[in-house]
Design a protein around this nucleic acid. Structure first.
Lengths: 145, 145
DNA sequence: ATAGACCTTAGAGTACACTTTAAGGCAAGC
DNA sequence: GCTTGCCTTAAAGTGTACTCTAAGGTCTAT
């Protein structure tokens, strides 16, 4: 498969696929005799994985580190686990923000009949409803990490 | 409250709060006689909201549009609903990627004892497990929107 | 009253992640 | 054999979202 087809399948532009190969987010891709990339299912998986992680909010730099730890499979067990744990925490925090954002939009869509006087009133209303992870507006200082 | 305290409470830097005010992600902030910003709970809510939406992956531009629709509360009902719906879809797609990423990391952490020969093997293993939203690797072309 | 820590603005600078350009090669169809 | 459409590389350019700098003002404590 050539790069254009791979691009259509993954939703990642050809340019970005080349860029990802260059910086190591996907491994070196085999070439045909003519030097043209010959992309197989294994590479498609890696492109999709990179896309997914990037979309999830992992930086290119962290994704590089992450991948290097696995591709160069030395005994960096502890280092791996630390990076994993750290990234997991970042993503979980992002997930909470994302969930709150989705709830906000869903709430708006459900309540678009009712008229609220101010944006602030609405935000307040929403905070009331989010008594799942109960979070005060602020405790004392240094609330956000 | 001054901008530094607001920054500590929200986790958004003072510079970014000023920037958000300038571009309209938070409304004009009241000043003391000396010209210094006097930040109240209402503004804290708006800063937190902006931070949340940004972290969730909404662009500054879309967030501006979104906020303008509410602050200038004219009869743009349909326009509002369209923007809402559109943003909701973007965020839901992001959530799916994020969920997959979190699953990947969680899987890694759970299986760090077992040694997998290749990254690809592992990705494949994971795809097998994700038969929740069953997604083939690709159907025909034009899989990703 | 001088230092230190906060604040203000406008505008320049930076980091990140692509994206485009330039210059050229290969292969198929008319 | 020439156009079309794909491909290649290296390097320069772009867009987004901050982040920093310069030049100056105010407030509190010593």
């Amino acid at each position: 498969m050539n790069i254009k087809e791979a691009s259509q399948i993954t939703g990642v532009s050809s340019e970005t696929i080349r860029y990802y190969e260059k910086i190591g987010l996907v491994p070196p891709i085999d070439r045909k005799e003519t030097g043209v990339r010959d992309i197989d299912e294994r590479i498609i998986r890696r492109i999709n994985f990179a896309r997914q992680m990037r979309s999830a909010g992992m930086s290119v730099e962290n994704l590089q580190k992450y991948i290097q730890l696995f591709d160069a499979d030395e005994n960096n067990q502890q280092e791996q686990l630390d990076l994993l744990q750290e990234q997991l925490e970042v993503l979980e925090e992002k997930r909470d923000d994302l969930t709150a954002a989705i709830n906000h939009l869903t709430f708006k869509l459900a309540n678009h009949g009712k008229h609220m006087t101010t944006f602030e009133e609405e935000l307040h209303e929403l905070e009331q409803q989010q008594q799942k992870h109960p979070k005060p507006l602020y405790d004392d200082v240094d609330v956000k990490k």
